[in-house]
Design a protein around this nucleic acid. Structure first.
Lengths: 351, 351
DNA sequence: CTGAAAGCGCTTACAG
DNA sequence: CTGAAAGCGCTTACAG
């Protein structure tokens, strides 16, 4: 309005008849300002509806925030964990590059000790915030406690430990994702059919999560069909021979119409179906991985459920960015969409 | 490395032994720099792998870019078009606020003339970039030409006009989304079944788009079932009575097992199914709207296909941002994922 | 408890 | 064709 109107801190300082240093002190709630001056400035800030210019802030501030990434490495494997890293890096390049430093602490997901080793490194070169996949329950709780002690913020992706009270959890609602599988499968089944649900996990800590998916699935099924026959088996190995042996046994006993694998190992079952040329068994499982997509394309897998691993990483970075740099409140829980992939829509999924 | 190492333009200037103003001229490819000086500076830039600090750039630059939004208003309606606006505004608040001004040119989607009126306004208060839904074909082509003449960049969302060569198109691959419907429906049908595909559109310009969806659906169906019976009907009205009359006729003639509505008007058919208590007709259609979701919840609609209207808006803003502010190359075509919604996963979709 | 001044890495007149 | 200087809206020592 006024031609000579200054903006931002200068204008506040002018109106309050103080220096911008004092305004800055009030803005950051620092000590050493007379109560009267403080109130006056606070009022002016409210009056002006002052919004700091985040650009200027970041440019002027020498502060560099250090964000760490503590997730499994799977170099040689199909690489499910590359996806969140892609997402993190894309968020970083979009609005993190100045004032944020990224460091990687990748661990072997079959090796509990390695997880602990890696997280110990973090506290030697302290970071401000960390993005982690808490796949080892107890160790992750320990880590969370150490973070609290060291005032390190942490964001969980993929799986949650509600008790650990992370800054944010970004991932799927496991129970509900099981219901989604049920919802789709109702169209693949009839009343009297036999269904096999397989939990294939080497790490016992994930049993609980797979169980939640199974619960969701089962609940939906029982609401829909009265006499559906569901068998739930857990295998603690991903060895193909063991799996083949078990499947031979299970499929011989009953006429199974549908197999639901509660995680990304569904490709192992797909391979079995391909080898044995089974025509009448529908197969549903989890995760966009190279192997799974191949079997989706070839028709051995009918549906894959997926929870946007790339975007999980993206949002995890944004959560830390919002907390530290934009200083905005972050939601504790950010449930991802539960996506349904088929051979006709997977190609547009990666985006 | 060196303690006294300056960064950015200053360092370039020091190395080239010129002033930063000259560096700036080269950086922006402005006239008035001796060829020799220019080359020297260019070499240093390459050598240093110089990346401008976008924060400083935006802070120093007084330039404000004006982005316009030319999409339908649907105040009273179910509000499909609110979603892209939400997305645009969220991108704006994330990294647009400084240096971007947003203006709205909302038009009546039933009124061709109003579209033209609104776009005429745009050229009176010229904008730099515009996000539009080109739902009127010819008028949108005219608009595109005027944009080219006035050096205004335009981004299409929701529907594309490839010939118009927009900066970017952000939306679905229509043919492929029809195939996705086919892919799901294969599980709802058997060989000899009758299928009804309904195009319900008042605006004749959308006929072509609905046709593409139908093509995708039909192709998939014919690849999967040899003797499937598909009837394709187009209605140029969304009047409930007319629709009821047509549906009475169509459903009496044949035992229809599945109805596929090629756009968001699927709720009209859902209402018919509800009223007539039809139990054996599956229903599939498009778009996350309040009405459609209600019928998804109640089970009258089995699946909805959706293409992230919120994110379309978000990305459209980002496309303009990247082009004007970050000065990065923007992809001409950004196909959105083709999402499948059911009564069990719709609740996590809006995010 | 308070202020003057330099600086973040750019852009933008203006002078020569 | 080139450079010196002011300024964007903040932060950060430093001095008093």
């Amino acid at each position: 309005m006024k031609i000579t109107e200054l903006s931002g801190v200068k204008e506040i300082a002018r109106r309050a008849d103080v220096s911008i240093a004092t305004v800055d002190r009030v803005l950051h709630n620092r000590l050493g300002v007379a109560q009267k001056t403080k109130e006056k400035i606070l009022n002016i800030i409210k009056e002006m509806d002052y919004k700091p210019n985040i650009l200027a802030k970041r440019l002027a501030s020498k502060r560099v925030y250090k964000f760490g990434i503590l997730i499994p490495n799977d170099h040689n494997k199909a690489g499910y964990w590359k996806a969140p890293i892609t997402g993190i890096e894309s968020a970083y390049s979009e609005f993190g590059e100045f004032g944020v430093e990224l460091s990687y602490y990748l661990f072997d997901k079959e090796d509990r000790k390695n997880f602990v080793e890696m997280y110990d490194v973090i506290f030697e070169q302290p970071v401000d915030g960390i993005i982690l996949a808490p796949i080892f329950l107890k160790e992750s709780m320990d880590f969370a406690i150490k973070c609290l002690e060291n005032r390190v913020q942490y964001v969980f992706i993929e799986t949650n430990i509600p008790a650990a009270r992370a800054l944010s959890y970004i991932g799927a609602d496991l129970y509900q994702s099981g219901r989604v599988v049920g919802n789709i499968c109702q169209y693949l089944l009839e009343e009297k059919d036999n269904v096999l649900v397989l939990n294939i996990a080497k790490n016992e800590d994930s049993a609980e999560h797979l169980e939640k998916r199974y619960e969701g699935f089962k609940d939906f099924m029982l609401e829909t069909f009265k006499k559906i026959n569901i068998t739930n088996i857990s295998l603690e190995s991903d060895n193909a021979e063991i799996l083949n042996y078990e499947l031979d046994k299970l499929l011989k006993k009953k006429d199974v119409r549908l197999i639901f694998v509660t995680n990304g190992r569904v490709h192992l079952v797909a391979e079995y179906i391909r080898k044995h040329k089974l025509k009448n068994v529908k197969l549903v499982g989890y995760n966009y991985t190279i192997q799974n997509i191949e079997y989706l394309k070839s028709g051995h897998i009918d549906f894959l459920i997926c929870q946007k691993p790339i975007e999980q990483g993206y949002r995890a970075f944004v959560a830390l960015y919002e907390h530290f740099i934009a200083k905005r409140k972050v939601n504790n829980v950010q449930y991802m969409p539960i996506d349904i992939l088929t051979k006709e829509n997977y190609m547009y999924y990666e985006y």
